[in-house]
């Protein structure tokens, strides 16, 4: 009996340490990602100029010119287009689901948005090539149709589930008294949404937009398939160009590990990593601000 009891206690202790070490492992993983990618990326600047990397758009590794401005611009521009197109649409759908939709319609929209999130990004890229690139070429008379606009449109669709689900959650978590008080004062439903509910849910909506930005800027395959993959600085929204992610995919296979060219690609992924870490800190600030209401 005493033996049996000590075995139970031993399991109890072992389980506790297993759980703690799993949690510590998660922290160690993110630290080692920053470390390894950081070391590899920063060693670019042993050979290349840091100023040129961020301010020049002349990318010609064969002659030792590593100006990554084109790719940085491409990533920021596609992300901006995605937020401008997808943000309002997603927010509208979230308001609809939280405040207007009859329960049956809502129970259809929930799984539909989940399905949007489940569609693989290569499939978005595939539809992007077949449909959007073609459509852009026909409507704008651009030579190819590949470019920032095609990338932005595909990303706008891909961020919808993020925007919708987080905004809807924050609208739903508002106290019912807000809405009741406003309606009791004679405000219409739209006045209540616009003047009361949306301002109160703003921190949550901000979180949704920031996470959508993180998703858009890091998205690789879908963008790579429709951006055109030219290292020229974008002359228009419909001219082929590149983003940080698409250029990594294009050039990683052709460059030997440890070369300056290869390191420059790691530097680009370090930029992506740092941007996503900054966005996470912004989310934390926005959540904390929401909590202090």
């Amino acid at each position: 009996m005493a033996h049996r009891k000590s075995a139970v206690q031993l399991y109890n202790h072992m389980a506790r340490y297993l759980f703690i070490s799993s949690a510590v492992l998660v922290s160690l993983i993110i630290i080692s990602i920053i470390w390894f990618v950081g070391i590899q990326g920063l060693s670019t600047f042993r050979q290349a100029s840091i100023l040129e990397f961020f301010t020049s758009s002349y990318w010609n590794p064969e002659t030792n010119h590593y100006g990554a401005l084109t790719f940085i611009t491409g990533s920021l521009a596609t992300t901006a287009i995605a937020i401008i197109l997808g943000g309002p649409l997603g927010l509208a759908a979230a308001v609809f689901m939280a405040e207007i939709a009859p329960p049956k319609v809502r129970s259809l929209m929930r799984p539909a948005t989940e399905l949007f999130a489940g569609i693989p990004s290569v499939v978005y890229g595939y539809v992007g090539i077949i449909v959007f690139v073609d459509l852009i070429r026909k409507t704008t008379q651009a030579p190819t149709g590949y470019g920032l606009l095609a990338g932005g449109i595909v990303l706008a669709i891909m961020i919808l589930p993020t925007v919708i689900s987080i905004s809807e959650d924050s609208l739903r978590s508002l106290p019912a008294t807000y809405k009741e008080a406003s309606l009791a004062l004679g405000a219409t439903r739209w006045q209540t949404i616009r003047k009361i509910l949306l301002p109160a849910a703003m921190p949550g909506v901000m979180t949704a937009v920031i996470l959508a930005m993180a998703r858009a800027i890091g998205e690789t395959m879908a963008v790579q398939m429709v951006i055109g993959n030219s290292s020229r600085f974008p002359q228009s929204l419909v001219a082929p160009t590149s983003t940080l992610t698409s250029n990594i995919v294009m050039e990683m296979g052709n460059t030997p590990f440890g070369s300056t060219w290869n390191n420059a690609l790691f530097m680009m992924s370090l930029i992506l990593l740092l941007i996503s870490l900054i966005l996470i800190i912004l989310v934390r600030i926005s959540v904390r601000r929401g909590a202090s209401y």
Binding site: V26, S27, I29, I30, I31, I33, V37, L211, A214, R215, I217, G218, E219, T220, T245, I248, V249, S269, L272, L273, S276, L277, L279, I280, V283, R284
Partner: peptide, 13 residues
């Protein structure tokens, strides 16, 4: 914070 950061790391990274 580590878990949240890990969740936003772009898959290419």
């Amino acid at each position: 914070l580590s878990t949240e950061s890990l969740a936003t790391v772009p898959s290419i990274v």
